[in-house]
Design a protein around this nucleic acid. Sequence first.
RNA 1: GGCAUCGUGGCCGAGUGGCUAGGCAGAGCUCUGCAAAAGCUCGCACAGCGGUUCGAAUCCGCUCGAUGCCUCCA
Length: 494
Amino acid sequence: MALYKEQSLKIYNSMSGEKEIFTPINEGNIGMYVCGPTVYSNVHLGNCRTFISFDLVFRYLKHLGFKVRYVRNITDAGHLENDADSGEDRIAKKARLEQIEPMEVVQRYTVDFHNTLQKFNNLPPSIEPTATGHIVEQIETIKKILEKGFAYEVNGSVYFDVLKFDKDHNYGKLSGRTIEDMIANTRELSGQSDKKNPQDFALWKKAEPQHIMRWPSPWSDGFPGWHLECTVMSTKYLGESFDIHGGGMDLKFPHHECEIAQGEAATGKTPVNYWMHANMLTLNGQKMAKSTGNNILPNEIFTGNNPNLSKAYSPSVARFFMLQAHYRSILDFSNDALMASEKGFNRLMDTLRNIDQLPVSNTSSFSVDEWQQRCYNAMNDDFNSPILIATLFDAVKYINAIKEGDEKISQQDLELLKNTMHDFIFEVLGLVDSTIVNEDRTQKLSGTIELLIKLRAEARNNKDFATSDQIRDQLLSLGIQLKDGKEGTTFSVE
RNA sequence: GGCAUCGUGGCCGAGUGGCUAGGCAGAGCUCUGCAAAAGCUCGCACAGCGGUUCGAAUCCGCUCGAUGCCUCCA
């Protein structure tokens, strides 16, 4: 029997503002769409947090036995830097600055994006469609929206008629805004716009002569509006109504609001059942953003080459740090916090490595079943990874107590404990034990250190503490720590 | 200015109307040749002011503060 039949998953739906029991449209199958990056520069860490959050969701849904189709787009069509009718698109601008083709920009940063997410051990999505690969579909959707009367053409551009849509569809329901508020708060853009109302947004833009990324359409040579690709590609691969749509908080308005409008206008159906929004990662208390320069590149964490960091941290430590906060909370990035996470992470991994050496008893002195269910309860409660991690640390306590002889565990429960730990740490949280990444070298290293441990033990037996301490201290300065326990000495590599 | 979220012990971060979050750091103890590691014990936190309640850090109101969105951004 599939796990999802035994576990009741709740998801916080941004649309209702409440945790709701999750029920997919088709039992056992889930369609999930997440807004991907615009590939005009290196992904920064804030981007990564969002994708790690949804990787956690993807992994847990799969763990529960659902068949998940996870679609995440690549925005590679040039969109304007601002919403006025003039301005350069960001990909073209980068291309001009670096003197390369726009598609070279796209390729370069798509590769960077994939490499980086792979280091964080994110699973690739099931489908990763590009905006430029779906120009035809986007044009077809614009036609549909025009036919339904929710869009109008002006000077070769097509705009979505927000006021008309709002009359019986309630534009703003996701972000809690009303048209009246928006009108009252509109900043006049000196009136050179073709739009009927400032709230309207572009479905198709006529390209200026110097605009490089352009495609023919019934209205003009131009390019699609930014919000359109997500509507079109989610519909194409997941259907007119699908289960989960995710993205960063900053996309809630206007991007997701526009997606809802486009979808409802084109099909008359509600496109998404559960909206999920991942919160921001801040640095020095401010949002990380490419545009303000307040950001850290993932690679700078791995190398330690950033003024905010005192040392390098592995991708798994950074991932663990992020998973120690709930995805809907703002998380502030700092060197101190990362350092604390690293120590906790190492302790967790050390314990996991000791699990095979535990003494087995006839009975268990605590309930492994109950503990396992607490792990599921944490994740069932809107993917609460911090609670899950706290529960895993409870297991660390159990394991150490068993080692000390203060608790007992049966063979059967030990298997359960071990498997559950492995499932949650590696499969669900997606963490990687860095010391077992390169098995061959690790084995050679282990053999070498075991030899030194043996020599040190002999020296200690002979009361030759000068030699034994030299071995211990010099290994430590190399980042290898010896740990004397009741059943001999073990070691850990920094 | 409008909309929204948040304000928890030294730091990071969960959470529930009354019952222990967890991690890191710190103190003491056990273990150790000395350490480290590991284990055990400890700090009674919840922005401020009112209100609801038998009882609120958890619900409501106000004040202060922070952040996000309102223009491209995960």
